Simulated assay, not measured.
Amino acid sequence: MNAPCALRNRREAGELRVCWGEVEQVISHARLRGACPCSQCRAGRLKGAISLVRDDVRVERIEAQGYGVQLVFSDGHERGIYPWSYLRELG
């Protein structure tokens, strides 16, 4: 999957806006954090653990990784890399 044409992190609103050509997705920071694809978070979800994510969690930084983005959250979590296809599924 190709990269989006634009990413806009709206910290104050707690949302990430992702532009896929003519379609714009809006994904909350809390949703992104709760769906973190890192191995630790995925393992917890597979075991049935429910991760409680605070509504005030924010994406502090976005690091390009070629096939997706690494998101750094205000709670210190920074292990997940969100491939473009996964990011699109979340919206």
Rank of each mutant, 00 (worst) to 15 (best):
A35R: 15
Q25I: 04
R54P: 02
D56P: 09
C19N: 10
W20D: 02
S39M: 13
V53S: 02
R45H: 11
A30D: 12
R42D: 07
C19S: 11
P37D: 00
R58V: 12
I62P: 00
R17Q: 11
L16Y: 06
E12D: 06
G44M: 09
I62R: 02
G14I: 10
E12K: 12
R58I: 11
E12M: 07
A43W: 14
G34H: 02
R61I: 13
R33F: 02
S39Y: 11
A49I: 09
E22G: 00
D56C: 05
V59H: 01
C38F: 05
R54S: 07
C41A: 03
V18F: 06
S51W: 15
I50E: 15
L16P: 01
S39K: 13
R42H: 10
Q40H: 07
V57N: 06
I50C: 10
L16R: 04
A30F: 09
R54G: 06
R58N: 07
E24W: 15
V57L: 05
R45T: 05
D55V: 05
R17H: 12
C36P: 05
V26M: 08
R45Q: 12
L46N: 08
L46D: 10
V57Q: 12
H29N: 07
P37E: 00
P37H: 02
R17A: 01
R33I: 07
A30E: 14
V26G: 01
W20Q: 03
G21V: 03
H29L: 09
R10M: 04
C38T: 08
R11Y: 03
I27D: 01
D56L: 05
A13N: 08
A35T: 13
L46A: 03
G44H: 11
V23I: 09
H29M: 10
E60Q: 14
P37M: 00
A35K: 14
R42S: 03
R54L: 10
D56A: 03
G21M: 05
I50T: 08
E15Q: 13
C19E: 15
V53E: 07
R33K: 11
C38E: 02
R31M: 07
V53D: 04
C38G: 04
K47D: 13
P37N: 05
R61H: 14
